[in-house]
């Protein structure tokens, strides 16, 4: 089985710095980590490989320093990596990003399964998985919390729905996004770390994957950020004081008013 895991580099903190001119986020490689949701995707891919055999690829679109994170994924059981890195990809929204990733997937060739984290913790959109599936014209399932049965042809999955769960079967090739309760990601093994340090690494530019630059990055993004601002958090809470009995009375009064 050939599995591709999409990973995103995200800041390790939610402290934000903006480029005042382009109004996009300044991504600083120093404190970057793998998007936490993607670590579950990596683990699930490696487990499927251990069960069915095959190869796991980690793919990312990002700045050259993302190599460190892809190598980290290789220390955790991923076999090969592909980094899509080019100035032409910069400033991409979800449509332009999913376009670039679709070309990366095409570059890796006949895959059976793509696994993405449910969402990234910086943008919080949860759109890349479904958009990538549309770009590739393959079926998809989001929010998978358990793979019940896997073969080279099909997956039977449990997924989270709005009012519970659903059990669905999907014919491969396909894309799934995984929620965080699907597994407990492993730590890198010593042999894995050794492998990741010396393994060959592949990165591609927009031209390498045959990208139409009109569809990449800022140019290829239908959405534009026109204004960014930090929300007003200056408001002051009204204190409730007195004995705890008085405070509870005040709280119950508020409860009666708002219910």
């Amino acid at each position: 089985m050939k599995i591709i895991v999409c990973i995103k580099q995200v800041p390790s903190t939610n402290e934000v710095r903006m480029d005042p001119v382009t109004k996009t986020i300044i991504r600083d490689s120093r404190q970057a980590v793998i998007n936490p949701f993607d670590t579950y995707a990596i683990e699930e891919a490696v487990r499927l490989k251990e069960q069915l055999g095959g190869t796991v690829y980690a793919m990312s679109m990002g700045i050259p320093a993302t190599e460190r994170l892809l190598r980290d994924a290789m220390a955790r059981g991923v076999d090969k990596s592909l980094l899509l890195t080019d100035r032409a990809f910069a400033g991409a929204d979800t449509l332009a990003t999913s376009y670039a990733l679709s070309l990366g997937a095409a570059q890796l060739g006949d895959f059976d399964l793509i696994i993405c984290g449910k969402m990234a913790v910086d943008g919080d959109t949860a759109q890349i998985g479904p958009e990538l599936s549309a770009q590739l014209g393959i079926p998809f399932i989001t929010d998978v919390c358990e793979i019940l049965e896997a073969s080279e042809k099909k997956l039977r999955c449990k997924k989270v729905t709005d009012n519970g769960f659903a059990e669905v079967e999907i014919t491969l090739p396909a894309l799934i996004t995984v929620s965080k309760d699907i597994n407990m990601p492993r730590f890198p093994s010593i042999s894995g770390v050794r492998f990741s340090l010396t393994a060959p690494f592949r990165s591609c530019t927009a031209a390498d994957v045959g990208a139409d630059t009109e569809r990449c990055g800022l140019t290829g993004s239908p959405t534009q950020v026109v204004r960014s601002f930090t929300p007003d958090r200056s408001h002051k809470a009204q204190p409730l004081t007195g004995s705890m009995a008085e405070i509870a009375d005040a709280a119950l009064k508020i409860y009666e008013e708002v219910r």
Binding site: L95, T125, Q127, S133, Q135, T142, D162, P222
Partner: peptide
């Protein structure tokens, strides 16, 4: 932006090739 809305809307967006702003 229910679990379902967040899943289906991006599939539509990328198929008709337009933008989608979440949440």
């Amino acid at each position: 932006a229910t679990a379902f809305g967040r899943s289906m809307a991006p599939r539509v967006a990328a198929t008709v090739k337009t933008g989608l702003t979440a949440d």
